[in-house]
Amino acid sequence: MSQPLVITIDGPAGAGKSTLGALLAERLGYLYFDTGVMYRALTLVALRVGLDLAQAEPVEALAQQVEIEVVPPTQADGRQYTVLTDGQDVTWDIRSPEVERGVSLVARYPGVRRELIRQQQQIGQRGHVVMVGRDAGTVVMPDAPLKIYLEASLDERARRRTQEHSGGAAQPLDLVRSAIARRDDLDAHVLRPAADAVLLQNDGLSPEAEVAWIMDYITRHG
């Protein structure tokens, strides 16, 4: 295939989607777009205006009112993209512990999902984007010319997560494994590859090797 204008990367928690997506986007000169940041951005705005996140209706109404944008980095401060809410840069604010605690609840509301998927599709339709998520290829951009679905064993994903936190107060491997398994259960309704997705089993592969594999796939199917 010729260089696809939209590439989606889906897969379970800990499969390495974000690392791969960022590297692949850099290689192609594309926008790296983690769809999850939109849910974080909405959660941040909801907290700032004092909404009760446990009340679906006002949060869903807010989703209709807030314009969330994801663009290439606007500052050289280590960010992989810039997140804007109604024009305000909230790139680092969406990583706060308060947002971390509330985002899973916000992301479950059907009205929130409908509106943010619509906004995600607008970004994807511009092209030159690597979109990472759990349903990017099945729901958000089902017509994307190249869909990657990352697969990795539960043990491999737990090992990676443990290594990521080895510099701090790392949890025992069995606890990390159990936490990822619970996340898989929560995500079971979206954890499936698109019918035309390319499956990439990445146990033992470095992110750089994954990028090389995908670039080779693009070349071979051109």
Results as ranks from 00 to 15, higher is better:
R161N: 07
V45G: 02
A158D: 07
A63G: 13
P193E: 07
L199R: 15
Q64S: 13
E57I: 03
V103Y: 02
G50C: 11
L205H: 09
S153Y: 09
A22G: 03
L23F: 02
R134T: 04
A197W: 02
I9Q: 08
I9A: 04
Q65F: 00
G102P: 12
R118D: 09
Y217K: 09
K147E: 03
D143C: 00
A179V: 04
A22C: 00
I68C: 08
R220M: 09
G11F: 01
L154P: 08
L146H: 06
T85K: 01
E98M: 11
D185K: 14
L23W: 00
R95F: 10
G111L: 02
F33T: 13
A194R: 08
V211A: 13
T82I: 09
Q3F: 11
T43P: 12
L62M: 07
I7W: 06
L105R: 15
G168T: 12
V45S: 02
E67N: 13
Q55I: 03
S153I: 05
I180L: 15
V37R: 02
V6G: 02
A63F: 11
A152H: 10
D135Q: 12
Q122Y: 01
A144C: 05
A144Y: 05
I180A: 08
V130L: 06
V37A: 02
D184P: 12
A212F: 03
L150F: 01
D34G: 04
I123N: 02
A144R: 08
E210F: 00
Y32P: 01
E164M: 10
L191G: 01
G222P: 14
A76D: 15
V49Y: 11
A41Q: 10
G127W: 14
D185F: 00
A54N: 14
G127Y: 13
I7S: 06
P73M: 02
V6L: 15
E156W: 03
G102Q: 04
P4I: 03
D203V: 09
E67Q: 15
V190N: 04
V90G: 11
